[in-house]
Computed example of a mutant assay.
Amino acid sequence: MSTTAKRRLLIVLLLGLIPWTVVTVSGTVTLVLPFGLIDAQSWRLLTLPEYLRLSGGRVAPFIEAWPLSVFLYAGTLVSAIGGVFGREDPRLTGGFLALTAVGQLPFVFGLSQRFGYTAIPVGIVLMLAAAWWCYWPMVRASSG
Rank of each mutant, 00 (worst) to 15 (best):
V32S: 01
L33W: 02
L33H: 12
P34Y: 06
F35W: 14
F35H: 14
G36T: 09
G36Y: 09
G36K: 08
L37A: 06
I38Y: 03
I38A: 00
D39H: 05
A40L: 03
A40K: 08
A40E: 11
Q41H: 14
Q41L: 13
S42W: 11
S42C: 10
S42G: 12
R44F: 08
R44N: 15
R44G: 07
L45M: 07
L45K: 05
L45R: 07
L45E: 09
L46A: 11
L46Q: 14
L46H: 13
T47C: 01
T47S: 12
T47F: 01
T47G: 02
T47V: 04
L48E: 03
L48D: 00
L48V: 00
P49T: 09
P49D: 11
P49Q: 09
E50D: 15
Y51K: 01
Y51T: 02
Y51L: 08
L52A: 04
L52Q: 09
L54W: 06
L54M: 11
S55M: 15
S55D: 14
G56K: 05
G56R: 07
G57R: 14
G57F: 12
G57D: 12
G57E: 13
G57S: 12
R58M: 13
R58Y: 14
R58S: 15
V59G: 04
A60R: 13
A60G: 10
P61V: 03
P61Q: 04
P61F: 00
P61L: 00
F62T: 04
F62W: 11
F62G: 02
F62A: 01
E64F: 13
E64Q: 15
E64Y: 14
A65Q: 05
A65T: 03
A65P: 05
W66G: 00
W66E: 00
P67L: 02
L68S: 14
S69V: 09
S69E: 10
V70W: 01
V70D: 05
V70A: 08
V70L: 05
F71W: 15
F71M: 14
L72Q: 15
L72I: 15
L72A: 13
L72N: 11
L72F: 11
Y73K: 05
Y73N: 06
Y73G: 02
Y73F: 14
A74P: 10
A74G: 12
A74V: 12
A74Q: 12
G75R: 00
T76C: 10
T76D: 04
V78W: 10
V78D: 11
S79I: 00
A80T: 11
A80S: 15
A80H: 07
A80P: 12
I81P: 10
G82Q: 03
G82D: 06
V84L: 08
V84C: 10
V84T: 13
F85Q: 13
F85P: 11
G86A: 04
G86P: 08
G86H: 06
G86L: 02
R87W: 04
E88T: 05
E88H: 05
P90E: 02
P90V: 00
P90C: 00
P90L: 01
P90M: 01
R91Q: 14
R91V: 11
R91W: 10
R91G: 11
L92C: 08
